[in-house]
Design a binder for these strands. Structure first.
Length: 760
DNA sequence: ACCAGTTAACTTTTT
DNA sequence: GTTAACTGGT
């Protein structure tokens, strides 16, 4: 038996071996948070305090859940497959499948991803003849998800005005539509499970008794409903072990509530609060920068990272004149890093928003440097895969109208808008699904719809007793998808993706233990199965949800939920050693030898949409904190005076975050403040490299427009508004006015003859 | 049913 | 500058 506790620092050791009481672990970036969480589970099991089936470990991403399982099986001789380790949504899916009747769902209920949800909402609005200008589908979706994330049903939402009343009404109708179609959205998975457990006492008590230890990763990212869910699962005296970092809370925009950390502390009467402040990732100057920056936030639980690694190199800061040059500079630096022996995949280029990647990609492409962009389209989100999935969904649950509409005329089979209108009328009249309404449509339209219905039923018949991969192969052939893409010019990739679906199914069936060669249970996990069926004191039989999908649903249902819950790899194909490009958000949890944080400009980072409220700026600051703490040895930050955004040139000030960094940790590679007479000529390098790109009609000639000595792009200072950049000048002489970007004070139009402006 | 041409929008993102 | 969604013509 290996000693799990070796090589833990005193804080980590204390956290791992805490008594069975509620605990909050404040774990800074790079402090070994995941390690503590996993070792805690292993230690609890190894010391006999809990059996593997008594552990509930919740994460936010599938990646994190997988990593946890992998590392846990490396520590202990157990099969983690049957354990309750997963995402909130994955675990809820399992519970709802096992108890679908109690939850008011069909056995084959299907899960809508955000795309599906939006189209379901659009469909709803259309069927109700509601003006989607007045009630934008996207807003309605945010409204519904926001309410659900707080644990509120339509009738529980406070109505403030008529506009809101309509939203609430539509929320209720949306839920009815989903119920009719046998589908649930992501938020519904959680809310349904919550309601199931809240209402069903025997079930609740069963799971509360079962899960002796509940462990939560990234606790700062929980929303209100997830917190309530955890509270319900834990019950009285439940032991929740929450690990998180309030300084890394960057998902408030999707409902995450950092306040859950202090609420948890209060409501669970947490006596065990441990801070992990020893950082094993970054050198001193980098860490100092992170610490000094984040100290500007007001609402913090308080934490300061330290390292034994020494100061290391200073943080390098570069000011560029244009986004193009910024990209070129990044590439020059990256090149020299590689020449010095750096591995490409150990270099990351981070940006605030995806739109910024284009310039950088372009420059990398021209320079012939391999790179990888995270956050592209994922496998199960590709159109052709979505189509194939829709056929499978119809085979498993024909009342899924979204799936029906997606493929009823794809490949085209002569079912146009008119035919569908008839069908939708019939369905509405009868209050049934489109599939069920087909017999009610007469004439030519009825005939072609009938043929489609026969196709689905024929496919289901042919496939019914076959293993999942063969089932999918038959669907691909019979649906005509493969034939359709074969006739398309650029269909080869799509066909390959479709064939890939068969492979994915083969892999899935093997991994989830479906089929004949499912591994037999043995060892410490046997009790997982033993609990499969229990009878409570009241004589109510409970079918216990096992963590393995194969016990509670058919391979097809399981595969479909897998497709919705795990959209597939979010990163470009691995293989070649490549530079890593991603948003700051998607960099969370990763680390690199060298990091470039780019586009550090007012309006971009912090983003302009977040500047209205102080809490918004604080979240941006945490985002910046996350970005800084990704770097191990070398950190670059850059910003540009001009940038093409939405097709027009923007003049930005450098980010306020620069003023919040410790000067002694920084090294400015270019002058911090430029002499006014130099303006964009300030960098000889810039001017030369620039010439080819700066054609006669781009930025260069804009600078030639002089008025009263003021130039577009020039940095100025105003008594009241502080520093700004001249974005535009209109008129001339005594009617000249300048549009000036004052960063946090916003854009102002000032009369140049009146305003007291100074050159900076 | 399908194409081309026009228009409006547009942080961050996992499940 | 890009893209999705819509309009009008064939």
């Amino acid at each position: 038996m290996q000693n799990l506790l070796l090589n833990l620092n005193p804080e980590q050791l204390a956290a791992v071996t805490l008594p069975a009481q509620p605990a909050l672990i404040l774990a800074g970036a790079g402090s070994g948070k995941t390690r503590v969480l996993i070792t805690r589970i292993a230690w609890l099991i190894q010391t006999g305090q809990v059996s593997p089936s008594g552990v509930l470990a919740v994460t936010f991403t599938n990646k994190a859940a997988k990593e946890m399982m992998m590392r846990l099986s490396a520590m202990l001789p157990i099969n983690t497959r049957g354990m309750w380790i997963g995402t909130f949504h994955g675990l809820c899916n399992r519970l709802l499948r096992a108890h679908h009747k109690d939850a008011g769902l069909t056995a084959t209920f299907q899960i809508l991803d955000s795309q599906d949800q939006l189209s379901a909402i659009k469909r709803l609005l259309k069927s109700l003849n509601i003006d989607d200008e007045k009630y934008p589908p996207r807003n309605l979706m945010y409204f519904i998800n926001g309410a659900k994330d707080q644990g509120l049903r339509a009738h529980q939402v406070d109505v403030s005005d008529d506009y809101n009343r309509k939203f609430v009404e539509l929320y209720a109708l949306y839920d009815q539509q989903c119920q009719r179609e046998g589908v649930v959205d992501f938020a519904e998975l959680l809310l349904r499970t919550y309601e199931l457990l809240a209402r069903n006492q025997p079930l609740r008590e069963h799971y509360q008794a079962r899960f002796k230890h509940i462990l939560v990763d990234e606790f700062q990212d929980t929303n209100d409903l997830q917190y309530k869910w955890l509270k319900l699962m834990a019950g009285q005296g439940g032991t929740v072990f929450a690990v998180g970092d309030d300084d890394q809370s960057i998902y408030a925009f999707r409902g995450a509530n950092v306040g859950n950390m202090s609420t948890f502390e209060r409501e669970f009467k947490v006596e065990n609060l441990i801070k992990l402040e020893q950082n094993y990732r970054s050198h001193g100057h980098i860490l100092d920068s992170a610490n000094t920056l984040i100290a500007n936030n007001s609402k913090r639980l308080g934490k300061n990272l330290r390292t034994d690694a020494g100061h290391g190199e200073p943080v390098r800061i570069y000011e560029s004149t244009s986004d193009l040059l910024e990209a070129q500079w990044i590439i020059e630096e990256a090149k020299s890093l590689i020449n010095e022996g750096a591995t490409r995949s150990e270099i990351a280029i981070l940006y605030r928003s995806n739109a910024q990647s284009r310039v950088i990609e372009h420059a990398l492409f021209s320079a012939g440097i391999p790179y990888r962009v995270y956050g592209g389209q994922r496998y199960f989100e590709r159109a052709e895969v979505k189509h194939a999935i829709a056929y499978l969904q119809l085979m498993d649950n024909p009342h899924n109208d979204s799936a029906f509409l997606r493929v009823v005329n794809f490949p085209t089979r002569g079912i146009g808008a008119r035919s569908l209108e008839h069908l939708q009328d019939a369905a509405r009249q009868q209050g049934i699904s489109l599939y069920a309404a087909v017999p009610y449509v007469a004439g030519k339209a009825g005939a072609s719809l009938g043929a489609f219905l026969k196709l689905i039923e024929g496919t289901r018949f042919e496939a019914q007793h076959l293993p999942l991969p063969e089932m999918i192969q038959i669907m691909l052939d019979m649906s005509g998808l493969i034939t359709h893409y074969r006739s398309e010019r650029e269909g080869a990739d799509r066909i390959e993706n479709l064939e890939q679906l068969v492979n994915a199914a083969t892999l899935f069936v093997a991994e989830e233990g479906f089929g004949h060669n499912a591994p037999a249970l043995s060892g410490p996990q046997a009790d997982v199965l033993a609990a499969a069926s229990i009878t409570t004191a009241d004589g109510i039989e409970i079918i216990d949800a096992d963590a393995r999908l194969s016990f509670i649903m058919s391979p097809l249902s399981a595969f479909l939920s897998h497709a919705s819950l795990e959209a597939g790899d979010n990163q470009a194909k691995t293989g070649q050693d490549a530079l890593q490009l991603m948003t700051v958000h998607s960099s969370k949890g990763l680390e690199f030898e060298a990091v470039f944080i780019t586009g550090l400009e007012e309006g971009l980072f912090p983003h302009e949409n977040s500047q209205k409220e102080e809490s918004g700026v604080e979240e941006e600051r945490r985002l910046m904190y996350v970005a800084i703490t990704r770097a191990k040895k070398r950190l670059y930050m850059s910003f540009s005076q001009t940038r093409m955004l939405h097709g027009q040139t923007r003049y930005n000030l450098r980010s306020r975050f620069f003023d919040e960094l410790p000067e002694q940790a920084l090294k400015w590679l270019s002058p911090k403040i430029q002499a006014p007479q130099h303006s964009w000529f300030a960098h000889p390098k810039a001017a030369w490299v620039d010439e080819p790109q700066f054609g006669a009609n781009t930025i260069a000639n804009k600078f030639t427009k002089l008025d009263l000595g003021w130039r577009i792009g020039e940095n100025v200072a105003h008594l009241k508004f502080g520093e700004g950049v001249i974005v535009n000048i209109e008129g001339s002489g005594d009617s000249a006015r300048a549009q000036i970007n004052f960063g946090k004070h916003g854009m102002k139009l000032l009369d140049l003859t009146v305003a007291k402006l100074e050159k900076v």
